[in-house]
Design a protein around this nucleic acid. Structure first.
Length: 480
RNA sequence: GGUCCGGUAGCUCAGUCGGUAGAGCAUUUGACUUUUAAUCAAAGGGUCCUGGGUUCGAGCCCCAGCCGGAUCACCA
């Protein structure tokens, strides 16, 4: 309440200024303005004495007796304006002095360079495009309160250029991913977000009700089972990059809706995906960021390929000793206790090993690393390795100690697939996607598939520590 | 969910031992034709997150709650 009341004082003053401006012949909310170019382009094509039309939000203003300087910003960059009373006349100058920080204006004038060597527009006429009734955050420190930044992203974008930059990078990355994949012959497709069976992953779904059919539907947790139907149908290379929804916790690396890129390639396998992701990531790093080294969460990460590849068992032996897989269950549990890793009742040797891996090994893999040949129990939807049916032909890509992308040589045996679904569903037949299974029974070619968490990739590329810094409108609790 | 940290002017932040609520920017008024965190002079602006409690007296201490952050746990 207090902020609204005192906010109203600022608002009241601005409304008074607005009324005075309107009396002086400056309507507060103008029409479309045909500018010569955006402010970054005006700087790029700067020419002394060139007459230009520019527009933007006033982010700084220095008024003097008979002249004034201001900076406008349009989200690309800033540009300085100079307004002189003798050039634009008394009335226009007095009206200009009624402008407030945050107002959006359009100006016309010739470009020149000031004594302090700043490219500037000498204003010959100006128009008010939109009056700002509320004050902007402070110019020097900007807006730093994280809660306000996430809740009022407009303000965040206005006052923090580095935030604008991150989201422009996000746009570029997504565009470049599409053009990279399109160039390699992959088809972008859209599959259902509303699904009657939420398959393709193990996660709690969001639910909704579809009135027209009178059925409950789920927001998808993964597009996987639909993309594989397309592989069966003969779309040999498909991808989808869009939102998944998971009704689970929310923290620094999890948002309930997140963007995932899933790629499938018929007649390929996990190796196909391994080549693809290395080429794609280095391409993004080079073309958009112009570098291969990224600072992320206190580490320097080098994306130079080829990336390290290590079979799961070798990695475990590296950290836990060459004789690890000769140990007994009790010895393994003792080691877990020593490492302060909590083990559930009834865990077997493989589960103990994986728990230790999860808690103490994965986080140490800072440089890009493919973990391959995982135990089949850990990965239910992958084909076994040719030389060992207990292992599956997959990789998990770890960067900065975080899982960035899993890839599989996809399971295409419908009988085995049904068996695994039945184990997963634990007796609840309504959870088994029969339609998908019958698609598989028509025959799915050997297929390589991969999922990439786009938000986490962007965290890495932009050096962001929190997923909320790469999602424009992150989920927050309603204000109390 | 556990633990720890935070919430004070529009914004960024101070606030000592429990004793009249502070600064910078922003705002208002005045001066100022090359400023750029403009400068100079003056002024106004507060439900100290909410609700209880202790006390003669609470921004400060205690309890409960709300929101945010960090971290651990859970969760493919």
């Amino acid at each position: 309440m207090s902020e609204e009341l005192s906010g109203n004082e600022y608002r009241q003053q601005r409304i008074e200024n607005m009324n005075k401006l309107e009396e002086a012949g400056f309507p507060a909310f103008g029409k479309a303005f045909e500018r010569t170019d955006s402010l970054d382009k005006l700087h790029a094509d700067f020419e002394v004495d060139k007459i230009v039309k520019a527009c933007g939000r006033i982010v700084a203003i220095r008024k003097m007796g008979k002249m004034a300087f201001a900076h406008i910003s349009d989200g690309t960059c800033k540009f300085q304006l100079m307004v002189k009373k003798d050039l634009i006349g008394d009335d226009n100058f007095e009206a200009f002095k009624l402008l407030d920080l945050g107002d959006i204006v359009g100006v016309e004038g010739e470009m020149f360079i000031t004594r302090t060597e700043e490219e500037t527009v000498r204003v010959s006429s100006w128009t008010l495009l939109s009056k700002a009734l509320l004050p902007l955050p402070e110019k020097f420190h900007g807006l730093t309160d994280k809660e306000t930044r996430y809740r009022q992203r407009s303000l965040d974008l206005i006052s923090n250029p580095e935030v604008m930059d991150i989201f422009k990078k996000r746009t570029q990355v997504m565009r470049e991913i599409r053009s990279f994949l399109d160039g390699r012959g992959y088809n972008e497709v859209e599959t259902p977000m509303l699904q009657q069976i939420a398959g393709g992953a193990a996660a709690k779904p969001f639910m909704a009700h579809y009135n027209a059919l009178n059925v409950d539907v789920f927001m998808r947790i993964a597009p996987e089972l639909y993309l594989k139907r397309l592989i069966v149908g003969g779309m040999d290379r498909v991808y989808e990059m869009n939102r998944n929804f998971r009704n689970e916790g929310l923290d620094r690396t999890h948002n309930p809706e997140f963007t995932c890129l899933e790629i499938y390639q018929a007649y390929g396998d996990m190796r196909t995906m391994q080549e693809l992701i290395q080429s794609m990531f280095t391409h993004l790093a080079e073309t958009i960021f112009g570098k291969m080294e990224f600072e992320w969460m206190g580490n320097t990460i080098n994306l130079q390929t080829p990336w390290r590849e290590v079979p799961y068992h070798d990695l475990v032996k590296e950290h836990l000793g060459a004789d690890w897989f000769d140990k007994t269950l009790d010895e393994a549990k003792a080691k877990a206790a020593e490492l302060e890793v909590h083990i559930e009742e009834g865990a077997d040797f493989k589960q103990v090993t994986h728990e230790i891996y999860d808690k103490t090994i994965e986080g140490t893999l800072i440089q890009p690393t493919f973990i391959t040949r995982l135990p089949a129990e850990l990965v239910p939807l992958a084909n076994p390795c040719a030389d060992n049916p207990e292992l599956v032909d997959v990789f998990e890509l770890i960067i900065g100690g975080k899982e960035i992308a899993p890839a599989y040589s996809e399971l295409n045996d419908p009988i085995e697939q049904r068996k695994r679904f039945e184990e997963q569903a634990a007796g609840d037949g309504s959870k088994i996607d029969e339609d998908f299974l019958s698609a598989l029974e028509y025959g799915m070619p050997p297929t390589g598939g991969m999922g990439i968490g786009i938000d986490r990739l962007l965290m890495l590329l932009t050096g962001s520590d929190a997923i909320r810094d790469v999602i424009l409108f992150p989920q927050l609790k309603p204000r109390g």
